[in-house]
Design a protein around this nucleic acid. Structure first.
Lengths: 251, 251
DNA sequence: CCAAAAGTGTTGTTTTTACACCCATGA
DNA sequence: TCATGGGTGTAAAAACAACACTTTTGG
């Protein structure tokens, strides 16, 4: 029995890390915040570790505050990635060396990590991207034309996107991705982008209005080409009430 | 830098455990598989640990195979529980002592655990419940009249149920909870139970048929009171195809 | 033969879809 | 002034909700 315990003491320990897929919305496009790894031509998701007295959520919030300057960012767990071989071991060894991580430290990094995936939704305009100690740059990328990604981060990103799609009707994505004031066409474009399909303008408006989650602002977006669209903001109470059941009807 | 690493080496290690909320369907009721803890009047979710070369999923499947005899059970991650104080520390200490766990071992158990929650859907009739080393019994309980639960297991269970509800239209719950052959009223009752509301018989049938996920069997359930209902089984291909988009329309 | 559950269609209502014209603005 | 995107309503089609009678079976 004691034997079991001793084994267990070692056997069940793992390094816990977290990786965040940070979504932002800018120029009518969905953006992701990525780090360019030092000395390597690959990108990485912002990530971090969990300290003794933190929950995962607290650790993720802390990490993202370091990376974006945003306090108390919106985030959700979506999946744990626990494959002991999270990527090709040779690739990984080479990558770590290229990053300028010495053999000793590399050995540490080569241990088993279990990583908890979060997706995060932020107001693009509030983010001030800052690289971490392993990276040269931290900046926004388009989903389509991002570059090669380290480890299994590409897989994590895809999974996050799928989770986001699935939870579209249960999470306040508009509220978190858009600035406080926004136009209906902007909101529509956001939904179209996440869903990957076009929606009818009038039907979209009717439906959104029917939820009663928008507050109309008697104000128009100025300085923009063409007819000035009205501005709206979310009625957070109503939004959250509607999300509890899920926005009914789907898209 | 090396200092950081050394700290890190300790700081980021945690014990990984997993807890499974096992749902079964019997006598038109949703059941959960629970363990009665030795010497204590509390119930616990089946759980286990992750070994070095396993993924979490493999560990969960192994655990449930030990607890139910079922190989390759259906399961899904739904949440990580990482609160360092997963329940009242005094309660926990007392509980561990009562379980007959010596002080040394208790200290081990009192370390920080991060637990990954899975929900699992099994064919009740295929399960042969077996207690683990910490428990007197392993058996099925009704959702409503289960007893007090250990640690934060009650919270985990509630969260699992919420996740199950949310994913109702994206997971093959019927396929996994019902035996291979089943009747429409049984399927309906299953949906009614998970959703917590009554559905109209004729509308339910029309809708399920419209998905094209059922294979009609030209066979009736015999030996049952009243008019014999027809038997059906799932057309797994069609079911999975339909689930990809989510069963449209909701309930 | 009776009580209880299962099978089966129709109708009114609501929701969804498809579609076109005028307006305001910056270039 | 023109090209472009934004605002707005209606009608046909589809989906949904509500509803009752007959059949079968075991007790």
């Amino acid at each position: 029995m004691m034997k079991w315990l001793d084994e267990a003491g070692e056997r069940f320990l793992a390094h816990i890390s977290l990786d965040c897929v940070v979504f932002g919305w800018h120029a009518n496009q969905l953006k992701i915040l990525l780090l360019k790894v030092k000395n390597l031509d690959v990108l990485a998701l912002p990530g971090g570790f969990v300290m003794q007295q933190e929950t995962l959520e607290e650790a993720a919030i802390r990490t993202l505050q370091e990376r974006t300057g945003v306090e108390n960012v919106f985030l959700r767990q979506f999946r744990v990635f626990s494959d002991p071989l999270r990527s090709n071991p040779e690739d990984r060894a080479r990558d770590l060396e290229m990053m300028g991580i010495g053999r000793k430290r590399a050995a540490w990094f080569a241990q088993r990590f279990i990583s908890v995936g979060f997706y995060s939704l932020v107001d693009f305009s509030k983010v001030d991207p800052r690289p971490d100690m392993f990276s040269e740059t931290c900046s926004w990328y388009n989903l389509e034309d991002r570059g090669k990604m380290i480890l299994d981060h590409d897989h994590i990103l895809q999974t996050a996107l799928a989770a986001l799609r699935m939870q579209l009707n249960h999470q306040p994505i508009g509220y978190n991705l858009l600035p406080r004031k926004f136009t209906l066409p902007e909101l529509q474009k956001l939904y179209e982008t996440i869903l990957g399909k076009k929606l009818d303008r009038r039907n979209f408006q009717r439906k959104v209005f029917s939820y009663g989650i928008l507050r109309s602002l008697d104000e128009k977006r100025t300085g923009v080409a063409h007819k000035a669209p009205y501005l709206y903001s979310f009625d957070l109470r109503q939004y959250q009430k509607a999300l509890k059941l899920g926005l009914q009807g789907g898209w």
